[in-house]
């Protein structure tokens, strides 16, 4: 399948790429900002579509080339007139020091997307806030928490294990204030 529309949505493109990878026998999990866009119905719009796959870039490349993408760096693909970059983040799929244990499957008319659960997507964004003090990542975590049903108990357990209890409390307090 060739991607022709300039106005393609992040969800549509993620579905096309996921489907194509799946057809080639490659498992990939959607992570990062694209999950935020999907879970918040584009309240935050990412320009990156990040996947984690155990397959090698050598195996992945032909699939992306077939979709009209060009390999721009070791792990990153672009397509002229396409507003999104596709990156294959180095495996394993992890949330801080823990592996991703559970994924969500989003069914779309263009194919299924395997992605982080909303709770893990919050952890993924909070990891960037905890480790880099990135305010955008905190904002994205809040957007997901307000748009989706998440387990705050699980986020709290994970945050404490990561050694960021205080920053978790700041996140929860901001979440309460905005409700």
């Amino acid at each position: 399948m060739r991607i022709k529309r300039k106005s393609i949505s992040i969800k549509e493109l993620a579905a096309i790429v996921s489907n194509k990878l799946n057809e080639s026998g490659i498992d990939a999990i959607l992570v990062g900002g694209a999950c935020v866009s999907i879970y918040t119905k584009n309240k935050y719009l990412s320009s990156d579509i990040d996947f984690v796959s155990a397959a090698s870039i050598k195996e992945i490349s032909p699939v992306l080339l077939d979709l009209g993408f060009e390999r721009k760096s070791s792990r990153h693909f672009e397509k002229k007139d396409c507003p999104f970059f596709i990156e294959f983040v180095s495996p394993p799929a992890a949330l801080g020091s823990e592996p991703v244990k559970e994924t969500n499957v989003l069914k779309t008319r263009l194919g299924d997307i395997i992605l982080l659960t909303p709770t893990d997507s919050v952890k993924d964004r909070l990891a960037a806030y905890y480790h880099w003090n990135d305010p955008q990542a905190l904002e994205q975590a809040m957007l997901i928490a307000r748009s989706q049903k998440i387990s705050l108990r699980e986020v709290k357990r994970w945050s404490e294990k990561e050694g960021h209890k205080e920053k978790y409390n700041a996140f929860v307090n901001m979440l309460k204030r905005r409700k």
Binding site: P92, A94, G96, S97, E98, P99, A127, A128, H131, W132
Partner: peptide, 8 residues
């Protein structure tokens, strides 16, 4: 990278 799972 503080997000590398085997950093410790």
């Amino acid at each position: 990278n503080p997000r590398f799972p085997f950093l410790k």
